[in-house]
Amino acid sequence: MYLSRVEIDINNRQKTKELTHLGAYHNWVEQGFPNEIADHKRLRHLWRIDRLAGKTYLLVLSQEAPNLDQLGAYGVEKTAMTKSYDPFLDQVKEGQIMQFRLTANPTHAISQPGKNQPRIVPHVTVNQQRQWLAERAAKLGFQVVKTATAGLMDSEEIENFDIVSRDWPILKRGHRTIRLSRVTYEGLLRVDDLDTFKQTLMNGIGREKAFGMGLMTVIPRG
């Protein structure tokens, strides 16, 4: 696995004028793997947009290393870089506390009378979006760290994570224009099931992974 990053040249409107919807970003990521295109072999590429310290980055997790010239097509010159992710994965330990960042598409299924397939709809409130992650954590190999908070009468434990961004970016599919719910979470987790957690890091969480959702990154604490 490889983790790659490039700073998006957001101040150069001529260069980035095409990046108006999630499909354009998806195409950008795919063009970063010309060998896969030539071999007609499309592997999954997890990616997300990060905004940190006044800069905007494209972050990509992939099985093969990307072509940095292609990855830098819409980036600030000489900011495209990649490194092997495997050494980091090999160091993850069960019980380890980690700081995480996740951009995801929290949804739920609603049954439709007379239809076999349920309708997939987004969670729209902060409480629903928080609950979506908390309920899935155990199956994904981790637990969200809880912090005891002292109230007036007693104390309770709350999940130690925040929603730091919520928006509805555009995705164009043919003649259709739709908006996807995009939510970014940050907080602390504890690794419970090592193998499952590694699969979560490599395969992502939730829906719309081709369009910038599902990538979780972690940093060890302590």
Rank of each mutant, 00 (worst) to 15 (best):
I170D: 07
A65M: 15
H108V: 07
R119T: 11
W168P: 08
T56S: 07
L171S: 01
E135P: 02
G75Q: 02
D90T: 05
T79Q: 07
F142D: 01
V92L: 00
W47A: 10
V121D: 03
A73M: 10
K146V: 07
W47N: 08
H108W: 05
T107H: 00
E64K: 12
L102S: 00
L61Y: 04
L89N: 02
M98Q: 04
Q129N: 09
A137M: 04
P122E: 02
G32P: 09
A150R: 15
V164G: 12
R48E: 07
H123V: 01
T82F: 09
A73I: 06
N67L: 11
F142S: 02
E77A: 12
R166T: 14
Q128D: 08
G32V: 11
A109C: 09
T125D: 04
A138C: 02
M98T: 02
Q143F: 06
I37T: 13
L71I: 07
K93Q: 05
L46G: 03
L140G: 01
Q31I: 10
P87D: 03
L52G: 06
V144H: 04
Q131E: 10
H45D: 11
K139M: 03
T82I: 08
H108G: 06
I49D: 00
I49Y: 08
T79D: 03
N105Y: 01
V126F: 05
N127S: 13
K115E: 15
E157S: 13
A134C: 04
T147F: 12
I37W: 15
L58H: 04
G95E: 01
L102N: 00
D50P: 08
R119D: 11
L43W: 10
G32S: 15
R42Q: 12
L59V: 13
G72S: 09
P87R: 01
Q143T: 08
W132F: 03
R130K: 13
A148Y: 11
A148L: 13
Q96N: 02
Q99W: 03
D69P: 02
V76C: 05
R101T: 05
N35L: 15
A138N: 06
W132K: 01
D167K: 10
A104H: 04
F88Y: 01
E135H: 08
L152C: 14
V124N: 07
Y85C: 01
K93Y: 02
N116G: 15
Q143G: 04
H108E: 09
K41F: 13
A137S: 06
R130H: 08
V60T: 09
E36Q: 14
K93M: 00
T107E: 07
K55Y: 02
I97R: 06
N105W: 04
F88D: 00
N35E: 14
M153R: 15
N116V: 08
E135F: 05
A138D: 06
A65P: 14
P34K: 10
Q117V: 12
V60R: 05
H45R: 14
Q128P: 03
G114I: 13
S165D: 13
Q99R: 09
T147Y: 10
I49Q: 06
